[in-house]
């Protein structure tokens, strides 16, 4: 009996000590183009989670220019690390390049299904298109993310760049990519939306 109690205690202890893995599968916004790696939002998020006393490791799987189509092969590669939680932050480049919404939807669906099949908690980060892409396209794009979140019953971060997009003080000169301060806001947004899942 004592041995059994000791075994259970040790199992709980090891589990607590072993860091869990949060994978962020994204594009240049996640990669943190132009800012140092430790100033990009995935690194800031990890700090934030650890400060709250939780033992999580955040993997920055952001690739500049990546479209949703790359999500499938990249998910396969990262599943080897058996992540506990995946934030899917892809799709912005699809929109900027004018891809058909149905194509983005198909790719994001595949990635979510791959994760759910492996019992990985999936979170979807919503994106918006700038108004210059036209009302019709922007609306369709905006609606894609809630639609997928509802369909697959996954947590939705309504807009990854909430409070950051279109604020010059939080963006680099290109007006699209967040600067160091912008990444702090993004980290906060993500944290708020997933803290109960950690």
């Amino acid at each position: 009996m004592k041995a059994a109690i000791f075994f259970i205690f040790m199992t709980i202890l090891v589990t607590q000590l072993q860091a869990k893995t949060l994978l962020i599968l994204g594009d240049s916004l996640t990669e943190g183009i132009g800012v140092a790696k430790d100033q990009a939002y995935p690194a800031l998020l990890e700090k934030k989670i650890r400060t709250s006393g939780k033992n999580w490791k955040v993997i920055n799987a952001g690739i500049s220019g990546a479209t949703s189509a790359s999500g499938i092969s990249r998910m396969k590669w990262h599943m080897k690390q058996k992540p506990d939680l995946v934030i899917l932050a892809l799709g912005a480049n699809d929109g900027l390049r004018g891809f058909a919404i149905s194509e983005t939807e198909k790719n994001l669906s595949t990635v979510i299904e791959m994760g759910q099949k492996e019992k990985i908690q999936m979170v979807l980060a919503g994106m918006l298109m700038p108004p210059n892409y036209g009302k019709e396209y922007s609306e369709k794009f905006k609606n894609l993310f809630p639609k997928l979140a509802k369909k697959y019953k996954v947590r939705l971060i309504p807009f990854l760049l909430d409070q950051v997009a279109s604020d010059p003080s939080l963006n680099q000169a290109d007006g699209i990519h967040p600067n160091e301060k912008g990444h702090q806001v993004v980290a906060e947004t993500v944290y708020k939306n997933i803290q109960d899942l950690l």
């Binding site: 132009g34 140092a36 600067n179």
Partner: peptide, 21 residues
């Protein structure tokens, strides 16, 4: 690392961002 981009000149910021890409 860039702590405050407002303290950098245009050229300094551009060079640092180039390294951080």
């Amino acid at each position: 690392r860039i702590e405050n981009q407002n303290t950098l000149t245009r050229e300094e910021e551009s060079e640092k961002r180039f390294r951080n890409r």
